[in-house]
């Protein structure tokens, strides 16, 4: 009997080891697939225009490594640094303001019961299903009447993304819902006002979700190449970095800019990725919570 179980565990262990071997193999293959495009982009960014042209090629490792593309970006030949700063400003402003708005909405919807609350929640949910591109032209002229296009495109972009951010209350409200209401009640009996409860109790407890919200808000502007180019057209210095890089790829005037695009892409990816990786814990908490709460 005892011998038998021993045999069993041995065979199981072996099976597990074989299984693990294949698991590792699979994981390594997956990792290669996942990393390959990023590896490609980084490699291409080191290919020099001088020696190997700046367009597409069908090999990965450049024949000669050079920092030409990065030098080009920092040389001031283009407005790259300005575009980068623009994006940074937009991202930072949106991250702060959007988080504030979302906290306000979520708290109100999670903790307060008022007339029209359900209507508001459903209405916002339904609004979100309307395709956003359609309203670009309208938003453009709305912003134009208050002077926030072209020269004013950056505050304009911030305004638009912050203004409609209330609709993104979903994940944050779901999280606040999980904070026991009994805590509120206790505080209210002690005479704390709603505002006080928000600041002294809810905010500290909702820290993970606040960080998640800020992180997501911060990342979005780096990828906005459609609306940003729509409201900033004809005004080079109000582009954000995504618009400019996208133009290098798609507009015919820029021949041989592919490697520069890659270099720009790397520079964009570095801060975003670094921030994301360092706050990954909160991100996981956010998406998991959001997915389950719905």
């Amino acid at each position: 009997m005892a011998k038998n179980t021993e045999k069993k565990t041995v065979s199981m262990k072996r099976r597990q080891r074989v299984g693990n071997f294949f698991s590792y193999l699979l994981l390594i293959v997956l990792s290669i697939i996942w990393l390959f495009p990023f590896f490609g982009i980084v490699m291409q960014s080191f290919r020099s225009y001088q020696t190997e042209f700046g367009g597409m090629v069908n090999y990965v490792i450049p024949k000669q490594f050079s920092l030409d593309n990065y030098k080009f970006l920092f040389s001031g030949e283009t407005n790259f640094l300005k575009w980068y700063m623009n994006t940074l400003i937009i991202a930072a402003a949106v991250a702060v303001l959007q988080t504030i708005i979302i906290i306000c909405t979520s708290y109100a919807l999670s903790r307060m019961r008022f007339k029209g609350r359900n209507f508001l929640m459903r209405f916002w949910l339904i609004l979100g299903m309307f395709p956003g591109f359609l309203t670009m032209i309208c938003l453009y002229f709305l912003l134009k009447t208050i002077g926030l296009t072209q020269q004013g495109a950056i505050p304009g972009l911030i305004l638009v993304s912050v203004a409609s951010s209330g609709m993104g209350y979903y994940v944050c409200k779901g999280y606040m819902d999980t904070v026991p209401k009994a805590l509120d009640e206790a505080a209210r009996i002690d005479g704390a006002s709603r505002a006080r409860i928000l600041f002294t109790m809810m905010l500290p407890m909702a820290k993970p979700i606040i960080i998640y919200t800020a992180l997501v808000s911060f990342m979005a502007p780096w990828c906005d190449y459609i609306f940003a180019s729509y409201i900033a057209f004809g005004h080079d210095s109000s582009y954000n970095v995504a618009v400019a890089l996208y133009r290098w790829m798609k507009v015919n005037d820029y021949q041989g800019f592919f490697t520069r695009f890659c270099a720009g892409g790397v520079l964009v990816a570095i801060p975003v990725t670094a921030l994301f990786m360092s706050l990954q814990k909160y991100y996981v908490e956010g998406v998991t919570g959001g997915a389950v709460k719905g």
């Binding site: 032209i137 296009t149 729509y230 057209f233 004809g234 005004h235 080079d236 507009v251 015919n252 005037d253």
Partner: peptide, 20 residues
């Protein structure tokens, strides 16, 4: 401003008043 031949027409048509 650097707006190439490809973009110029599209942008002009989007909003003539803000165009070049």
């Amino acid at each position: 401003e650097a707006v190439g031949e490809g973009d110029a027409a599209t942008n002009m048509i989007t909003d003539v008043t803000a165009g070049a």
